[in-house]
């Protein structure tokens, strides 16, 4: 196994004083690998992935455990230190990507601002960079998208804008929470290819949450399966998909509707 870029150690997260949302979870993400987290809705996938960059929703606190990234324990980081890592070394595509866009500002403005908050380049250069990225995600109408307010775009278009924003920074670690859930299959294929290329061309390590077992099976090197806040099993993709050990993983795999194609009669 390659060197680890990220290591989660006995992580436990709780919201207020309710039951734990993530309980004693440990796994690691090797350098330049793609790791997929799959599992039950409400099992703490978003909580876990958001905790890495310190952006849990209100009331969430890390009760115990460590998050090691490049030899540093992020759990001990101050807000200031975290802020510097976010966007530069680690970027995140949120599950409800579209709703992270400001509804009162045009896409272009937001995109350019985001780029310029991390890179010292001119507005024009930032705009070009943004347009190029949008085009790679099948938003060929990039000019129109840049001039639009979020409500003028379809669900899948907003999601791709969010992906584009996450990808332009060339982060070392990309955290992606359900990045393709709103996309049709042809565009999903394009986005999946884009992520694979990001890893191959720039060595980006990707940790993604997905409900799409097909996408996980295709894209990931390692798969982490979660249920009710706990990690039920994790390992190499082939092993988890083809030889699942835990009954829950088997149940999950058997619930996947498969497309029936081919001639009948």
């Amino acid at each position: 196994m390659n060197e680890k870029l990220l290591e989660i150690k006995n992580l436990t997260i709780r919201y207020h004083n309710q039951k734990t949302a993530v309980e004693d979870v440990s796994f690691n993400v090797p350098q330049q690998s793609i790791v997929a987290i799959v599992g039950e809705s409400g099992s703490g996938k978003s909580t876990l992935i958001r905790s890495i960059i310190g952006l849990m929703t209100s009331g969430g606190t890390i009760e115990s455990g460590e998050i090691w990234f490049q030899e540093k324990n992020l759990v001990t980081y101050s807000n200031q230190e975290m802020h510097e890592i976010r966007g530069n070394k680690i970027s995140m595509i949120f599950q409800d990507g579209g709703s992270y866009l400001d509804s009162k500002k045009k896409i272009g403005y937001q995109f350019v601002e985001t780029i310029r908050s991390h890179l010292k380049i001119s507005k024009i250069a930032a705009r070009e960079k943004a347009i190029e990225m949008l085009k790679q995600l099948c938003l060929c109408d990039a000019e129109r998208v840049m001039n639009a307010y979020p409500f003028m775009l379809s669900g899948g278009m907003c999601q791709r804008v969010a992906i584009a924003m996450g990808m332009t920074m060339n982060p070392q670690l990309l955290l992606a929470d359900e990045p393709t859930s709103a996309l049709d299959v042809t565009i999903q294929a394009q986005v999946v290819r884009q992520m694979a290329e990001l890893r191959n061309d720039y060595g980006t390590t990707i940790l993604l949450v997905t409900h799409n077992m097909g996408v996980a099976a295709y894209l990931a090197d390692y798969v982490v399966v979660m249920k009710a806040g706990q990690l039920v099993e994790w390992g190499a993709c082939d092993q988890i998909i083809d030889h699942p050990q835990d009954p829950y993983t088997r149940q999950l795999l058997s619930a996947v509707p498969e497309l029936k194609v081919g001639c009948v009669g």
Binding site: C138, C140, R144, T186, A189, M213, L259
Partner: peptide, 24 residues
């Protein structure tokens, strides 16, 4: 374009060629 769980993982991704046209 569907990703199948038990599909061939080495397979090239089928990507529709050409650009989606503009509705404008």
């Amino acid at each position: 374009s569907v990703f199948s769980v038990h599909g061939d993982r080495k397979k090239e991704i089928n990507v529709l060629f050409g650009e989606p046209p503009s509705p404008m």
